[in-house]
Design a protein around this nucleic acid. Structure first.
Lengths: 212, 212, 212, 212
DNA sequence: TATGAATGAGGTTTCATTCAT
DNA sequence: AATGAATGAAACCTCATTCAT
C-alpha cells in the first residue's frame, strides 16, 4: 500500500505501456480529485493539469466519466491482487475476515482519492452499476462472501443469517467509517479501527451476560 | 409512513402554506428523481414537469442544488417527529435501538426518493455537509448516539467500544442494505430486515460456542 | 417577389409573431448565405451577425441545420401562396405551365439565397428528405403534376409519356438553368428564360420538318 | 460499365500504379459513400475502413475534400474515354445525342457513388468549381455542346435557341431523373428512360395537332 | 406571483490535420 | 511507405441563471 498512485502501468500486466499523454491525464484527474469533487472538475482543468490538450482526453476516453471509471478500474486492478495476497496463509475464516477488513480499511486509509471515488462519486451515477469497475467491485464482494460462507460451513460463523446480510453489515460498517473520515479529511487508523470493528461485528454490541 | 410525499406543508409547522408554484416545483423534482439521478435532471425539465417557467425556480430557490436540499429538508422535517414518536414508551435501550432501526428501514423502504437523495445524491456534494438538511441528519444521528450512550450507561450495551463506532456500525449496516436495494429498485422488508440486522448487530456474527 | 426576406412573420398566419431574437437569427443566416456556403458558416458567426448569443440559436432551433431548414420553410411558406395566386385565372394547361415556370424562375431570380439553399445546400443532407421543407417542396411538385395531368386529360399535352417524367424534364430544365447562374452569380432573366425554356420543352429541340 | 469501381488504376493511363495505401483510402471513401454522405464521413472512419492511419490520408491528399475530388477525378477519367467510344460510328446529331444521353444515364445507373458525388455532394462546395474534376465535367459538357451545334448546323436541331440552353434542358432532364432515383435509392433503367427522355426533349411535350 | 426572452460561461466533444519517428 | 501520438480550433450545445415586465 505504499504506492498510492498505481499509474504508469502496463495494459495487461505484460502488455504495452500506456502512451505518456494518457498517463498524464489519469494522473491529472487523480491529483485534482484530492482537491475537489469530480462534478466540479472540468475537462479544461484536467487537460491543463496534464499539460495536454482537451482533445487528447477524448482520444483515450469515451468521455469525462469514462476517464473516471478507467482511473477507478486501474486502482481496483492494482489493489485486487494485493488484497488476495494479504489473505494468503491465513487460517480461520474469522481471521481471514479480520485481515480482509484491515486490508480494506488500509486501502481507503492510504488512498483517499480511491476512497473518494468509490464511496462518494461513482455511486450517484446510474451507469456506474453497469460499468467495468463495478464488475471488479463485485468480484471483491465475492471474496468476502466466500469467506463468510466458509466460516458458516466450518462453524466459525453463525448459520442462521443470510451470508449476504452478514457481508452487508461488515462492508457497511467499514464504508460508513471511511466515508465519514474521507468527507471530513480525517485520518483513518486501519489497525485500531479494524480491531474495533471486528470486536463489534464479531461479538455484537450487547454486553455479555453473566458467565459469558 | 402513509404519506410518502410530504408536500403542501407549511413553512414552519404553524407558518403559511407554500405558494402553488413552489409546491409544483418540489413535486416535479421529486417525481423526476424517481426516474433519473439529480445530475441528469435539468432545470428546463423540472420547469416543464412542474408546468412553470424556469425563472420561477429561481424565485423560490437559490439554485438547483438548493432546491434539492429544500426537498430533502422537507422530507427530514416530516420524518423527524414520526421517528421520535415511534420511540415513545419503549423501554430498554436495545429495544429503542431496534425500533429506531426499524423506523429508518421503514422510511427508506416506503420513500425511495428520499432514500435516493440521502444515500446517493447529496453525499457527493461538498456543500451538503454545511447545509441545513445535513444539520437535521446530524440531529437524527444524535438521537441514535443518545440511545447507545444510555445503553452503555445502563449496562445493556458493551462499554468497551466508542459509542460513535457502534453508531457507525448500526447505521452503516442499515444504509448498506438500503443502498443496494434502492440502486437496483428492489423492495425492502423493514420488519424482516430490521430483525435480521438486530440479530447480527446485537449478538455478532460469531457462532456462540458451547456453554457460552 | 419584391420582398426577398419574408421574415418577421407570424407563426401560423394569425399566430403570434416570432420573438425578436429568433428573427435576427434567421435574418443573420440569410445574410451570411449571400456571402458563403452553409458549411463554412459557424454558429459563432451567425450569433455575432444577429447580435445575440450562440445559446439563443439553440433555444429556437434544434441545431444549425434545423435553423437552415426553418429558414427554408419560411421561404417556402411565403412563396407557396404567391405561386398559387399567380396561377389564378389562367386558362389552358400549357399556359398554366408557362406561368408556373415563370414563377419559379422569377423566385430563383429574385431570391438568390433561397435558390442557393434549395439548389445547392440542402440536397446533400440526407435528413433533408425527411424534413418539413421537403414536404412543402413536394407540395409544389404536386401542383406541377396536377397541371400536367390536366393538360394530358384535355389533350394539350401528349399522353404517351408518364406525367412525372414530363415534370422532371420541366423542373430539371429550370433548376439546371438556375443552378448554373446561381453558382456563378450570374443574373437570371425570368421573362426571357421562361419563354425560351417553354419553346424548347413545349415544342422539342427537333427542327420541324416541312409540312409539320 | 462492367467495372463500377475503377480503382487500382495507373496515374495517367501509362504511369505507375498507385501505392496500396492510397488505393485502400479511395476505396474506403467510395465504400463509405454508398452508406452516408460525405459530410458525415470522418477521416477517422475513412482510415479505419481503409485499415490505415489517418495520417496516411494526408500523405496522399491535401485534405479530405481533395480526396473526394481525386476519387471523382478518377471516375471521370475512367468514364470519359468510354463515353467518347460510345459515340464512335454514330451518324446523325440527334442519334449522337440520344446515345450520349443513354451513356450518361447508364453511368449514373451503374455507378451510384459517382452519381452521388457529382449530383449531390460536390455541388455545394464552392471550391469545386475551380477544381480539376470540374474541368473534366466541363469537357463532357463541351462534347454535348459540340453535338448540338453540329445538329443546328446540319438542320437536325432547331436554330432559334441558344445551344447552351438546349444543353441545359437535356442535361437538366437527365440529372433531375437521376437525382431523384439516387436520393431514394431507386434503380434507373437507362434504356427505357433514355428513350422516354429523348421523346420528350426531341419532340416536346405538346400533343401534336392534326396536320402538324 | 409569474413569465418570456435572453444570456454567460463554460461544457463536452469532434475532426481535420501535423509531426517526429 | 507508414504510423503513433498529439494538437488546434472550433463546433455544437447545455444549462443554470438573470432581468424586464
Amino acid at each position: 500500500m505504499e504506492t498510492p498512485t498505481p499509474k504508469r502501468r502496463s495494459k495487461k500486466e505484460t502488455g504495452r505501456a500506456f502512451p505518456p499523454g494518457r498517463i498524464r491525464i489519469t494522473e491529472a484527474l487523480t491529483s485534482l480529485l484530492t482537491k475537489k469533487d469530480f462534478g466540479s472538475i472540468t475537462t479544461a482543468e484536467i487537460a491543463e493539469t496534464a499539460g495536454v490538450t482537451e482533445a487528447l482526453i477524448y482520444k483515450y476516453f469515451k468521455d469525462k466519466r469514462d476517464l473516471l471509471y478507467q482511473v477507478l478500474r486501474e486502482y481496483l486492478e492494482h489493489y485486487e491482487p494485493r488484497i488476495k495476497m494479504d489473505l494468503r496463509g491465513i487460517k480461520g475464516s474469522l481471521n481471514k475476515l479480520r485481515k480482509l477488513m484491515w486490508s480494506h480499511l488500509n486501502v481507503y486509509a492510504k488512498d483517499r482519492v480511491f476512497a473518494k471515488i468509490l464511496l462518494l462519486q461513482v455511486r450517484s451515477f446510474s451507469d456506474y452499476y453497469i460499468s467495468e469497475p463495478y464488475l471488479l467491485v463485485q468480484r471483491f464482494s465475492g471474496i468476502v462472501l466466500d469467506i463468510i460462507a466458509e466460516g458458516i460451513e466450518n462453524g466459525e460463523i453463525r448459520n442462521d443469517i443470510d451470508p449476504r446480510i452478514i457481508r452487508q453489515v461488515v462492508m457497511g460498517a467499514i464504508e460508513q467509517v471511511c466515508l465519514t473520515n474521507v468527507v471530513f479529511n480525517r485520518p483513518i487508523q486501519p489497525e485500531e479501527m479494524g480491531e474495533t470493528l471486528c470486536q463489534v461485528v464479531f461479538k455484537g454490541i450487547t454486553k455479555n451476560a453473566e458467565g459469558r
